[in-house]
Design a protein around this nucleic acid. Sequence first.
DNA 1: ACAGACCGCGCC
DNA 2: AAAGGGCGCGGTCTGT
Length: 571
Amino acid sequence: MATRIALVADPDGPGGRFQRLADDGSPAGPPERTADLAASVAAAEARERPRWVWASTDALYPRLLPLRAARCHDLALVEPLLLAHEGHYGHPRSLGAAWARLHGLAVPEDRRESALPDDQPTLFQPDRLQLPAGTDPLRAVVEVHADQQRRIAAAEHPDRMRLLAAAESAGALAAAEMAYEGLPWRADVHDELLTGLLGPRPPAGVQPQLLAEVAAELQQAFGGRPFNPDSHVQVLRAFAEQGFSLPSTRSWVLQQVDHPAAALMLRYKELSRIHTAHGWAWQESWARGGRFRPEYVVGGVVSGRWASRGGGALQIPRMLRGAVVADPGWSLVVADAAQLEPRVLAALSGDAGLARAAAQGDLYEALAALAFGGDRARAKLGMLGAMYGQTSGEVGPLLAVLRRRFPTAMAYVEAAARTGEEGGVVRSHLGRTCPPPSAGWQDLAGAGAAGAGAEDDGGSDGDRAVRAARARGRFTRNFVIQASAADWALALLAALRRRLAEIGPDATGGRPHLVFFQHDEVVVHVPTQYADAAAAAVAEAGEEARHLVFGATPVRMPLEAHVVECYADAK
DNA sequence: ACAGACCGCGCC
DNA sequence: AAAGGGCGCGGTCTGT
């Protein structure tokens, strides 16, 4: 067990205070003061690699970077994990809120975002502990931490909750480090890609040439009247005038329309999307100085997946991945966990047949061989339907096959769905708990159970109650898988950043570091001489995460690492 | 003028 | 019989 050290930064100035803690969180020394927080942290890292206990990694760690902390306990991230596990939901995350709850005081409102000026990323805002005036922040950190340690020990599976808290906290370290490093982004390559698609860069606010041309052709195809292709209403009306009554302007709908305007519309949407979401304006805002610097929001999704704020970090179009190029003398290691979610289901449920398929490199191929006459496409469609709760169309019969051949796995997801339909909560393997149903959902469920029959165009209350129940069932069905996959991914990140820290440095001080993380995929930027070592570290970290999270399971969760110069070359 | 709902699409 | 999970973002549209 690592030493624990509680740490608070002075609100202004480079100093701070700290206190050594025993593993249960009780003080193991007196409160101490340092005039140079970073120097004290660096010294302690070199000496003993403690687990830093602090209010919020977001608030404190950026001021320490590029200094690396090996591990931490993030009180603001652990608190909601524990609260949700204990049956509470929707509480503020600040240290102040946790401290107030602990002392039976009124919980302060969470005003993390609202009061901030918008010219600076939230990440670099000073700490907002939101403690009552006069409260000693170090004492609050120590007390809230001790309380959290007690609650972790009281969890349904204390070891798993301890791992979850550590992994979530390690994720926060990795997120701050990735924001600091940035993803290598070649503006010149991005420009070339945009110019090829849209024409030369126009002045701000002017439609690119090729986009304007497609818009003009569209207008011609619809008879020449002024027409805004960005307006769904106008697009639907234009198609109606040509004799096509469309349910929506979705691309799969347009693909089936036999009219010259349909192809133009699809082309327009594609170009417009690139221009508005990842065009020159995006580059100006998010990818300056050769780096794309997104803000990750650790735990931003209830399932434990990360979200991002600004820049669309988790939606970089494949079309633009050519702009992600390693620095000269450096490489990228790109690795993703293939078919992670069905593998996670196999591990969670302990289904022997599915585990047999998941012991293979291509799970769907193996599944097809076991149950679908070798038809990989149908095996995949059925598996996805089982995990998402889809049953329409051709999926129904596939589910019947899965139920017959993999009864334990199917019973697992169906039990999760039933729990959700009945208003219950489910947990990930490590104990992350899904939110309870909303008040509106419960009202609807009550009305549905009462059999009241007020009709409107949404059907009777009973119909709506059934639809809402099914929707929640699909959510909890998917939650157990998605959230357990997120458990694994966090453990992977934690293991990987620890292993990467042991590689290098090269003659210029270069070391590998994580630069991108997207649910089940990581990108490492690494001096080329260490690329193979980093690729090996990725594979080993995947194995470590599998053992940590799922214990002894025959299910493989392979991470295939590609050493490339350019992200686009990884697949 | 602004806020929030809705749409449709990018990613997993 | 039918029933598709999770996000962020920028666009229009609607209500105030």
